[in-house]
């Protein structure tokens, strides 16, 4: 539907009646009644009046700035509703070797940031939300399609992190972020962390309930620091195996028991992170209905162009107008 940015200009529309006040073409000063066609205005007059009305109307409509007001249109794409749950503890600022990054080393958070940028770049149809967690979970960005907003939220991960890691409440927040617009079969939480913590029993129960209700799929991208125990490593007999000493392994076991599709990736280098993100991308690609933004489109130029055409016709008519000269009759041959 066409909308007007300056609707007040439309008040000038009665000016379009001006052509009915005067003739466009000159009237001959010397009346020659015998040249008139039956006492009514010739067809050229009526045509030029119509051209004038159209031209003036088009100009006034153009001045009112007509446009198509944009919005969104549904789009069938391939992707998923993803919540990126990102560890904001300060250990993420260390390199994969577990020390402050120097020279050509990349910190874990910088690697994650760079690869996530690439990830969102390649997947235009995803709706992505971002949540962070340290001691407290925080919702950074509700599920959105705005690439600029997602990029700004990922860029902000470059700031130095906070203190501790409370995985349980972070997961609960991420699972709770899916709204009605997220189809139940395309919801996924991607948790990126370099450690885990013990999840309290109440939180465990809450998580189980949430997972059952929301039906999310869960991915854990574990950024393993050199020297840290892996999540898949089964302790040797005699070695302590408690959630306090091996929180990552026990978190993995807990997530497996959660009753939702779950997959863990262990990455100990930026390349491994890249592979894991690719794999998640391949798994989370199913048809989803999303909205594509439709920009506002300006229509004024069409009206101005039409007006220019009409004014050109009127100018041509003036250029061609002639005063009525007595039509010189064909020389009469006088035969003697």
């Amino acid at each position: 539907m066409i909308a007007f940015a300056h609707p007040l200009a439309l008040l000038a529309l009665p000016l379009a009646l001006t052509p009915f006040l005067r003739r466009w073409l000159a009237s001959a000063p010397v009346p020659r009644l015998d040249l008139r066609t039956g006492g009514e205005a010739p067809w050229t007059d009526r045509l030029l009046k119509a051209v004038g009305v159209v031209g003036i109307t088009a100009l006034i409509l153009g001045l009112a700035k007509p446009h198509l007001p944009g919005g969104t249109r549904p789009h069938q794409g391939h992707g998923a509703n993803l919540v990126l749950l990102i560890d904001r503890s300060f250990s993420m600022d260390d390199s994969f070797a577990g020390r402050a990054p120097n020279g050509d080393e990349e910190s874990k958070s910088a690697a994650a940031r760079r690869l996530l940028f690439e990830f969102i770049e390649k997947r235009p149809d995803d709706r992505i939300g971002v949540a962070g967690f340290s001691t407290a979970p925080m919702q950074v960005l509700a599920l959105t399609q705005s690439r600029s907003a997602i990029a700004a939220a990922i860029a902000a991960l470059g700031e130095r992190g906070l203190s501790q890691t409370d995985v349980g409440r972070g997961l609960a927040m991420a699972m709770d972020m899916f709204d009605e617009a997220a189809a139940p079969d395309s919801r996924a939480v991607v948790m990126v962390s370099d450690g885990a913590g013990v999840i309290a029993r109440e939180t465990q129960e809450a998580l189980q309930a949430l997972a059952r209700r929301n039906g999310v799929r869960l991915y854990w991208l574990y950024l393993r620091t050199a020297g840290a125990k892996g999540i898949f490593e089964i302790p040797r007999p005699g070695e302590a195996d408690t959630p306090q000493l091996r929180p990552e392994r026990h978190l993995h076991i807990f997530l497996q028991r959660l009753g939702v599709p779950y997959r863990a990736f262990e990455a100990d280098s930026p390349e491994a992170v890249d592979e894991a993100i690719q794999a998640i991308g391949d798994l989370e690609s199913r048809p989803i209905l999303t909205l594509r933004p439709l920009p506002r489109r300006d229509l004024a130029w069409i009206f101005y162009g039409l007006a220019a055409l009409m004014a050109g016709v009127l100018a041509a008519a003036r250029r061609l107008e002639r005063a009525y000269a007595p039509r010189s009759s064909a020389p009469t041959e006088i035969r003697p």
Binding site: A12, R23, P29, G52, I60, A300, A311
Partner: peptide, 19 residues
Amino acid sequence: FGALALLALLVGWFAPSGL
């Protein structure tokens, strides 16, 4: 420019008509 065009077109209808 649109306003100028409108003005010119309106003036055009009131141009001296007699030849």
